[in-house]
Computed example of a mutant assay.
Amino acid sequence: MKKLIVAVFAIATALWFLNTSMLTTPPSGTVKILAHRGVHQVFEPDGVENDTCTAKRIEPPRHAYLENTIASMQAAMDSGAEVVELDVHLTPDREFAVFHDWTLDCRTDGTGVTEETPMSKLKTLDIGYGYTADGGKTFPFRGHAQGQMPTLTEVFTALPHGRFLINFKSERRAEGATLAVLLRAHPEWRKSVFGVFGGSAPTQETLRLVPGLRGYDKQSTLACLGRYAAFGWTGIVPDACRDTLVVVPANYAPFLWGWPGRFAARMRDVGSEVILLGRHGGGDFTSGIDSAEDLTLVPKNFAGYVWTNRAETIAPLLGKRMAATNHQANRE
């Protein structure tokens, strides 16, 4: 029995030394904001399913920005966002429409599948048509957003200093190939693409055709985190976690070997960036760090990216927290 206790203690001690953040220097730099959909109208996420029209359940508007517009992206960057996430669909006239929904019926005055609609038609739609915060009694954005659905080309042109995480909404490999062609034709836009994710086929096709680009899909994320959970305690980083974007739900993060400092250092050493999401309770990885309470889930020395739906709120809160931390460090 005594030998067993000694063995267990020795193993526990070894695991602690291999994975404690106390004995490693976390990656340098400061936390960075990744603004999901730019600055946009938010909604209560509870009960939302794939076919839920979220424009019909927005909170009372606090600002005039609509998601995935050039104005909303600029507002996110003005708030302090380092990266803006946006959604794309490849239309029949070979343009990338920047719009979230698979169909047009929820948010716009149009109907049909987004990717099946020519960009020339999409440009005529009112993308604020369907928004309501009071069950359809009033529509505060109706008539104010005609023609504001941008193309990806327009985004790159209007915001040349921006960085974007591109979400493929389909499983069409042609989307990845088309994006690669676009970046080859305009090499100056390559620096604007922080990464790609979403549909596995277009994501993997883009990564194959654009050297050095990072990206992820559901399968690669599960492979990375699952294999790291299995043997990351050894300090070995699985190939699925190398040269990629590692998205981590905040409520799972404390269970990762070496979280936060040693985990982040390991990912940095294999060429990956860490994106901290909000709490994950099933469905897609799209919940964000959206409140002061959520900010308690972000380690104070975290130097990765924080995914948020409220960049205009979270960026100032993070700034105040960093200022307070720096002030305390100077006093010490």
Score class of each variant (00 low, 15 high):
Phe194Leu: 03
Ile236Lys: 06
Gly199Ser: 07
Glu44Ala: 13
Lys121Ser: 04
Thr244Asp: 02
Ala158Lys: 15
His161Gln: 15
His89Val: 02
Gly215Cys: 07
Ala180Val: 12
Glu171Lys: 13
Gly162Asp: 08
Asp109Gly: 05
Arg321Pro: 00
Ala71Phe: 04
Gly319Asp: 10
Asp87Glu: 10
His40Asn: 05
Asp87Gln: 06
Asp284Pro: 00
Thr25Met: 07
Ala55Tyr: 05
Gly281Phe: 10
Gly136Ser: 11
His161Arg: 12
Thr313Asp: 09
Pro160Lys: 09
His63Cys: 14
Leu90Asn: 04
Val210Glu: 07
Gly162Arg: 05
Ala12Leu: 15
Asn251Gln: 05
Phe139Met: 09
Ala229Trp: 07
Gly198Pro: 07
Met22Val: 09
Thr206Ser: 12
Pro45His: 02
Ser287Thr: 14
Ser291Arg: 10
Val196Tyr: 07
Ile236Met: 08
Arg172Asn: 13
Ser287Ile: 03
Leu245Ala: 04
Thr111Asn: 05
Arg184Leu: 04
Val8Asp: 00
Asp134Phe: 10
Gly195His: 11
Glu154Arg: 08
Gly176Trp: 10
Val248Thr: 06
Ala329Ile: 13
Gly232Leu: 05
Asn167Leu: 12
Asn167Tyr: 11
Phe197Ser: 00
Gly199Glu: 11
Gln74Arg: 15
Phe194Gly: 01
Trp16Glu: 01
Leu159Gln: 05
Phe156Asp: 09
Asp78Gln: 15
Leu295Trp: 11
Ala177Leu: 14
Tyr131Thr: 03
Ile236Thr: 12
Ala145Asp: 06
Arg172Ala: 14
Pro92Thr: 13
Lys56His: 15
Ser291Cys: 09
Glu44Lys: 12
Phe156Val: 14
Arg321His: 00
Arg266Tyr: 08
Thr138Asn: 12
Val181Pro: 00
Leu125Ser: 06
Thr13Met: 13
Arg227Trp: 08
Ala292Pro: 00
Lys137Thr: 15
His89Lys: 01
Thr151Asp: 10
Asp294Leu: 09
Ile275Asn: 02
Trp233Tyr: 13
Arg242Gln: 08
Asn19Phe: 06
Val210Gln: 01
Arg107Asn: 01
Ala10Ile: 11
Phe43Asp: 01
His144Cys: 03
Pro160Asn: 10
Trp102Cys: 02
His40Tyr: 04
Ala323Leu: 12
Arg227Lys: 05
Arg279Asp: 14
Gly261Met: 09
Glu115Tyr: 04
Gln219Gly: 05
Asp126Gln: 01
Val6Leu: 13
Lys3Thr: 08
Ala265Gln: 14
Phe9Ala: 15
Val98Leu: 05
Thr157Ile: 13
Ala201Asp: 14
Glu44Arg: 06
Lys300Met: 10
Pro150His: 10
Asn301Glu: 15
Arg266Met: 07
Ala324Ser: 12
Pro92Ala: 10
Lys32Ile: 07
Gly162Glu: 11
Asp243His: 15
Gly147Val: 15
